[in-house]
């Protein structure tokens, strides 16, 4: 059924772009990450380990690039062109931190290359990975421009969770076995639970009712998560989620390879947008007093 899903996604995506909206989506989960607030403390990454049964691979395998951090804080030093001094002796403006998690691209580069359609787009706008379907070709991770797909080169169950550490494992999701690709899911188990709860109470999922583990723990509240669909209701206004409002405020739109902003100074941008991946994560530029 997954090939069908892939075809459905593509046609839905095209239709979405043409008609200026994603009308038959149930949700379109998205994020806004404010780099003015992000302090690079790594709380989100460890929260992700705790929530999503991420394996600890150890020093050796980390060196080989086999670490499993679905969410990582990247840190870059300034290139010598910011501010007054061109060739600087010191990093006077601190570090450049950016939390990177699966960008849940609408035109995901990982999806079309999967030979078994183990990765596809859900009607929630999520880029899904079906573990039991994955055969480990690793095409998807090679095709991801963000390097946010992680492969289980080994079976980590014994080595990563020696007794009784395994008792901490979250039963809401699988412990992935050897040969399987995995990635950030926007904490789909939490989305699922929230939708179940909403259905039980005969209502729609409320904005802010649940958060992915990273957004919930973030000490500075730099990560905003929610449904972007309201971005596409004309006028927004009533019922617009916080995250959709942030996208609108910063004049960032889905379905574009380059944003045409009325006010080009607004901080919103998407990483590697020009590659036509159409990510669902918007970043707000870091700010420095120069």
């Amino acid at each position: 059924m997954s090939l069908k899903n892939v075809f459905t996604d593509w046609s839905r995506y095209r239709k979405g772009i043409e008609e200026g909206g994603f009308h038959d989506y149930e949700h379109m989960w998205g994020m806004a990450v404010d780099l003015n607030k992000c302090i690079g403390c790594n709380a989100c990454a460890v929260a992700c380990y705790a929530e999503n049964n991420l394996a600890v691979v150890g020093e050796e395998k980390f060196y080989k690039g086999q670490a499993m951090h679905w969410m990582r804080i990247e840190r870059y030093w300034d290139e010598p062109d910011l501010g007054e001094d061109r060739v600087k002796e010191f990093n006077h403006h601190g570090a450049n931190f950016i939390p990177m998690m699966c960008q849940n691209c609408n035109a995901a580069t990982c999806e079309p290359v999967c030979p078994v359609a183990a990765t596809y787009h859900t009607p929630d706008g999520l880029n899904a990975q079906v573990y039991n379907r994955c055969i480990g070709s690793r095409y998807c991770s090679n095709n991801c421009p963000y390097r946010l797909r992680f492969f289980n080169f080994y079976s980590y169950y014994e080595s990563s969770w020696p007794e009784p550490l395994h008792m901490q494992l979250n039963p809401d999701l699988t412990v992935r076995d050897k040969g399987v690709m995995e990635k950030c899911t926007f904490c789909v188990q939490r989305i699922r639970a929230a939708k179940d709860k909403a259905r039980r109470e005969d209502r729609k999922v409320r904005d802010g009712e649940f958060l992915p583990a990273c957004a919930q723990t973030c000490p500075t509240g730099a990560i905003t998560f929610g449904d972007l669909l309201t971005l596409h209701t004309p006028g927004g206004g009533v019922g617009e989620t916080k995250v959709a409002q942030m996208w609108r405020d910063h004049q960032v739109e889905l379905g574009k390879t380059r944003q045409t902003k009325q006010n080009p100074e607004l901080r919103g941008y998407r990483v590697f947008e020009g590659l036509n991946t159409d990510p669902c994560v918007m970043y707000l530029e870091r700010v420095r007093e120069v």
């Binding site: 059924m1 859900t122 079906v130 573990y131 039991n132 379907r133 699988t174 789909v188």
Partner: peptide, 19 residues
């Protein structure tokens, strides 16, 4: 599961049932 979902109009999205 699948046959029943087909017959009873259950959801077919992979992530509805796979985690």
């Amino acid at each position: 599961c699948r046959r029943c979902h087909e017959a009873n109009d259950g959801p077919f999205d992979c992530w509805k049932c796979h985690k």
